[in-house]
Amino acid sequence: MAGGCRLPLVVIPAGTLFMDALLTSTVTVALAEIGDKTQLLSFLLAARFQNKWAIVSGIFLATIINHGISAWLGEWATNWLHGPWLDWVIAASFFAVGLWILIPDKVDEEPNLLAHMGAFGATTVLFFLAEMGDKTQVATVILGGHYQSIFWVTVGTTLGMLAANVPAIWMGDKLLSKLPLNLTRSLAALLFIAMGVVVLSL
């Protein structure tokens, strides 16, 4: 890297990097998605449309496009931004997302607005728009920059989104009422903060 920029994971073997990027991206985004506005949107979509697989497919398409761009942006940013302070920027971003996760979300989008598009079309459009600027998208940008692996970060974050939203689509309000949302948010926040500490310690 030019300018003496030090990325913490450059020295990690490829196999370990793949596992770290995939597993960390999956777990952190799955936890961050619990109670997030896109998960709440999944509940609304499931109540509005009968075709659950079309909703899942829409979430998958919207997420993989959105998060693919986000992971690329994160990798591009860390390659463009040079200097020994880059680790501090990444760590601060992890800390910020960790604190952001503690703030409960609400849904503003109304699925009926796109009902004429059907379950797949409405889900794809609404989910993509709802994810713009959302904490899970920001987390994907940070993870892409940290791990320098667009493919595995995108795969991991997409799996995390599906892991959190597929049960929500089929189980609906019963699942939401049983989830310990405050505890889950706290665990996700601690995980992001811990990742920030790890970045600074390497």
Rank of each mutant, 00 (worst) to 15 (best):
L44S: 01
I59H: 11
T63E: 02
F43S: 00
A119F: 03
L190C: 15
L99C: 13
L191M: 13
V10M: 15
G118K: 14
W80T: 15
A21H: 14
L9K: 01
L181G: 13
N66P: 05
V199P: 07
T16G: 15
F49V: 04
R6V: 14
S42V: 09
W88C: 12
N165H: 12
T78S: 07
G196N: 12
V107P: 05
T38E: 06
W72I: 07
L61E: 13
Q148W: 13
F120C: 00
V10P: 07
L162K: 07
A62R: 03
R185L: 00
V10S: 15
L40Y: 09
I55R: 07
V153A: 02
M132K: 08
L7G: 12
L162Y: 01
M195Y: 11
G3I: 04
G144V: 01
A77Y: 05
D173V: 07
F128C: 10
G145P: 12
F94M: 09
L190H: 10
G74T: 03
E110D: 14
A47G: 14
R6W: 07
W100F: 10
M132W: 08
T24Y: 10
V166N: 11
F94R: 09
A119Y: 12
T123W: 09
I103D: 02
A46V: 07
L202E: 15
G3V: 00
A54D: 09
E110W: 00
S177W: 07
F192E: 00
L181N: 05
G118N: 03
S70W: 04
M195I: 07
T78K: 05
G196Q: 08
N66F: 10
E110F: 05
L114M: 04
L7C: 02
L45F: 04
N165M: 00
T154Y: 01
A189C: 02
R185Q: 04
T78F: 03
K52W: 14
L190I: 14
L31S: 01
P167T: 13
N165R: 11
T123H: 04
S42Y: 05
V97H: 14
A21Y: 12
G3S: 04
S186H: 08
I65K: 10
G172P: 13
N79R: 14
I90E: 01
A62F: 11
G3R: 10
I65A: 05
A122G: 03
V107R: 01
T63D: 06
L99H: 10
V97T: 03
N112W: 02
W80V: 12
L159I: 10
G58F: 00
V155I: 09
D87K: 15
G4K: 09
A119R: 05
L22D: 14
T26F: 13
V27H: 09
F120M: 05
H146W: 06
L81F: 13
I169K: 07
V107S: 05
V125N: 02
A46P: 02
N112C: 08
F127Y: 00
V198D: 11
K37T: 11
W72V: 04
